[in-house]
């Protein structure tokens, strides 16, 4: 299964970005192979509708679960319809590595 985590940078030391649609990068973690790759969130630059555009990006990358700080009201129904699970990370500083450890 592929898990996407919203990230502020493109290394595992980067922190989790609390924003979903406008984060800079997504860490995409494969729970089977334990491979991590970072993709640029091309939706972040949109003047509007960054959330839905980010969902399209992740769906195109066969992501089945997303970890982020918050999901907007435009994004939730789309993720639900695509059967992509949402995982809300509550406040506090987390690095991408912290999150990955939970899946290992």
């Amino acid at each position: 299964m592929k898990v996407a985590i919203s990230a502020t940078g493109d290394t595992v030391e980067s922190s989790v970005d609390s924003r979903f649609g406008r984060c800079s990068f997504f860490a995409i973690f494969d729970t089977d192979t334990h491979n991590v790759k970072f993709i640029t969130n091309t939706a972040a630059e949109s003047s509007q509708g960054a959330g839905p555009a980010a969902v399209q990006l992740l769906a195109g990358n066969q992501v089945q679960q997303v970890v982020s700080g918050e999901f907007g009201m435009k994004v939730k129904p789309l993720l639900e319809q695509l059967s992509i699970k949402m995982l809300n990370l509550q406040n506090g500083q987390h690095t991408i590595l912290d999150v990955l450890k939970q899946f290992k």
């Binding site: 509708g49 960054a50 839905p52 769906a59 695509l82």
Partner: peptide, 20 residues
């Protein structure tokens, strides 16, 4: 150019986001 059409080819899913 307004992200008002949501499209995922693989899932054959297309939606108009009226708000946008």
């Amino acid at each position: 150019t307004y992200n008002a059409i949501f499209f995922v080819k693989e899932a054959r899913m297309i939606r108009v986001l009226d708000d946008l």
